[in-house]
Amino acid sequence: MNIIHFWRALWGIVGRELWRFVTQRERFISALVRPLVWLFVFAAGFRAALGLAIMPPYETYILYEVYITPGLCGMIQLFNGMQSSLSMVYDREMGSMRILLVCPLPRWFLLLSKLLAGTGVSVLQVYVFLGIAWFYDIQAPWQGYLWLLPALVLSGLMLGALGLLLSSFIKQLENFAGVMNFVIFPMFFMSTALYPLWKLKESSALLHNLAQYNPFSQAVELLRFALYAQFNQSAFIYVFVAFIAFMAVAVIGYNPSKGMMIKKAGV
């Protein structure tokens, strides 16, 4: 067992995922349509209703479309992370997950490779989305697009790890609808993706607290600052710690002697 084996396996898993994504045109388009509808329709409609004060990382008054763009980047990654977990539940039911799990590599490495593959896909989606947003006059400084890359990788890993964790606990594909209702929507709406924290505080202190400690909010803030070539240290630490925690539980979930694999079998 050597490092080359790990490297080849990693590229095998990442390459397969990227190839599948590129060749599945419908998946590519539908992944873009969702945030674009939010940007072109929802944000345009709410522009007048929501007044935004000047706040970091912005140095001037901004349009609502500009405000929600990092949130929509986060949304792409959130949905992608959940979709990856959906495909893992599907793969497990269909058996192809077994091929991965019986290969002679540590399980944590296989799961991490899967996660990196899913993150790679989401990063591609985000940059295509930002490219379209550029022509809609939502333009960040060029350095911001470079800074965004490591931030996208970390937030993608964190949201992917959450999906992985959920997939280790979901017994059947049918249960996935519950994930949509109980995880994706609350995470998205109780976050800073659509409205800043101080706006939430005006309406409810509880909502404000929930949004503040929501890992998705922290991921969005990390992306927001990175897009303007700034580093949000607290968001970085929060997202990093959340990633480690989600990943650790997911690895336990997929461990044959401790996790949910055995519980799913009904033991």
Partner: peptide, 23 residues
């Protein structure tokens, strides 16, 4: 028992994926 090949990939791509997993 169930097919575990990726239907949307070619025979070669499926086999290369397995080869990569085995280093």
């Amino acid at each position: 028992q169930q097919t575990t090949l990726d239907m949307d990939l070619t025979v070669l791509q499926n086999l290369r994926y397995h080869a990569a997993l085995h280093g």
